[in-house]
Design a protein around this nucleic acid. Structure first.
Length: 272
DNA sequence: AATGGGACCTGCGCGC
DNA sequence: TGCGCGCAGGTCCCAT
């Protein structure tokens, strides 16, 4: 599911709504999503703690708690965080897997149809293996640094943009949208890009992600914001999911190919 | 180093 | 109507 813009949107939604609230009770409806510690310890340890801060690193959400520990949430493909007035129904259509009952009468539900999602309660999030394997945040990168990173890579540019150890936060939707706007064919090798193309890629990474955050992310399938409402960025998509339809720029037919087992959408005329 | 495939799961849409 | 197949915003692990 969510890539950087969606996770950032949820982070900002959480900051506006649950900072300073206390966790009254935790109900684990499906223990599969609790990766550490055991579900019973997870429930017990969180009870009574206050939410002090909300952070994001790559596609990972991090909730800082009043005793110095951290609740980390990875939504993977179908995870959702939804704040509601009442407890989520574990058998309901929203697939509530964990419910956090908060002070002030609201409940934060972690929903996840496919159970790929991962919740962890840890002492030091920066030491997590997942975090240590992450490449730089897109907005922290300088153009010079990005250029150097690209020049060392022989791999194809689209899978590379999705490689979290190369740059963190970009997934399948935004890799496609960024490459379309930068006019780069997804099959090109990273080191084959010329200066102008590298500049365009750097610029579009920032602009596409920034715009997607501004519009609350892309609601394809399951993604919703904390309120349960959809993000509005899909209307700005130019290629993702548009195979067989005409390019908005040149009217050519948008193609779909497979790269690294993932669908890749692009305009064969605009992207060279 | 790079790439492909499968695994983890559930549910949807499609063709027959 | 029903069944089987392919597919899905992610990541990890193994084989070549």
């Amino acid at each position: 599911m969510p890539e950087l813009p969606e996770v950032e949107t949820i982070k900002r939604d959480l900051q506006k709504t649950i900072l300073g609230r206390k966790i009254i009770r935790v109900c684990v409806h499906n223990p599969a999503v609790i990766r550490e510690p055991s579900p019973a310890v997870f429930e017990k340890s969180l009870k009574g703690l206050t939410i002090k801060n909300i952070l994001r690193r790559g596609k990972l959400l991090i909730l800082e708690l009043s005793n110095g520990s951290f609740l980390t949430i990875h939504l993977k493909m179908t995870g959702q965080l939804v704040l509601s007035q009442k407890l989520g129904n574990p058998g309901g259509s929203e697939n509530s897997r964990v419910a956090f009952q908060l002070s002030g009468g609201k409940t934060l539900n972690f929903n996840d149809q496919r159970l790929f999602g991962e919740l962890r309660l840890v002492d030091a999030w920066k030491k997590m293996k997942f975090i240590q394997g992450l490449g730089p945040e897109p907005f922290d990168l300088t153009y010079g640094g990005f250029k150097d990173m690209l020049s060392k890579k022989k791999t194809r540019i689209k899978p590379l943009l999705m490689d979290q150890s190369f740059i963190s936060g970009i997934g399948n939707i935004y890799a496609a949208e960024i490459l379309f706007r930068a006019k780069i064919n997804p099959d090109r090798s990273a080191q084959s890009l010329n200066e102008e193309e590298k500049k365009a890629l750097y610029k579009e990474i920032r602009e596409v992600l920034k715009s997607a955050i501004k519009h609350g992310g892309s609601s394809i399938d399951d993604y919703v914001r904390l309120s349960g409402k959809q993000g509005d960025y899909v209307k700005f998509h130019r290629v993702y999911g548009r195979q067989g339809q005409p390019c908005f720029v040149c009217n050519s037919i948008i193609k779909k190919i497979t790269q690294g087992g993932r669908g890749t959408y692009f305009c064969p005329k605009c992207q060279r």
